[in-house]
Structure formats: structure tokens, C-alpha cells
Design a protein around this nucleic acid. Structure first.
Length: 102
DNA sequence: AAGTAAGAAATTT
DNA sequence: AAATTTCTTACTT
């Protein structure tokens, strides 16, 4: 079967996601390759500048890592933060995209 | 339904 | 660096 590639559009069409999650997914999926944003940035986009933790939760619990470049989301300090599939993979991805400071 | 716990952060001291 | 703050989801009662 054709694995229909899940896109950000699917996010808008789906589903049982909460409002917050939808906003987070949309915001994160809009991050261009080679750039990184902070959790605070996403949180602000989601409507709550202090929901940085909730942002991480949304990404981790839902495992939307295939449609959302959550690896482009790092801490405001420049630290790598965390990743549902291992921080190593995240760090490698960022480096592969040309992100410095890692 | 109400309360408690945890989670990949941020801010303040 | 430690403590506090903040928001949401998941689990327990």
C-alpha cells in the first residue's frame, strides 16, 4: 500500500489533537531546513510563551517526528535539548543541516 | 470528573 | 547551578 506521506496539511485535517498541539505542529513544521528555533519560539507561536515544556510534550507524546522537524527545535541556550528518538540523532541531523554550535 | 505526576524548557535568584 | 514557574498530557482515584 502506498504509504501516503503524512504532511503538515494532515495535521490541520487531523483529528484528536488539541488546539495547542496543532499550533505547535504547524509552527515547527514551518521551520526551514538548516535553521533552528527554540522551544520558547514555538511556545510563543502556540499562544503561550511559557509553554515550552508543553511543546516538548506534544512532540514526544505524539511521535509526529516523521512530519515535524522536531530536531530543529532546541533550547534557548543553544543546547540540544531532547529528542524522542535519542538526542544523538537530533544532534547529527542538525549538524547535517549545517547548524553550528554543536 | 477531580487530583496528582511527569515532561525534550524558561526565567529568576 | 538551584529553585521556581509554567502548560499540557497521561495516569490514578
Amino acid at each position: 500500500m502506498k504509504r501516503r506521506r503524512v504532511t503538515s496539511s494532515a495535521i490541520l485535517k487531523d483529528s484528536s489533537l488539541s488546539v495547542f498541539e496543532r499550533r505547535v505542529y504547524e509552527a515547527v513544521s514551518g521551520i526551514p531546513r538548516g535553521e533552528v528555533r527554540s522551544y520558547a519560539w514555538v511556545a510563543r507561536m502556540a499562544g503561550s510563551p511559557k509553554a515550552c515544556r508543553a511543546v516538548g510534550n506534544a512532540l514526544n507524546k505524539n511521535r509526529y517526528t516523521d512530519i515535524i522537524p522536531c530536531h530543529r527545535v532546541i533550547k534557548s541556550d543553544g543546547s540540544i535539548g531532547g529528542y524522542a528518538r535519542g538526542t544523538s540523532a537530533k544532534r547529527r541531523m542538525l549538524k547535517s543541516e549545517g547548524v553550528d554550535g554543536l
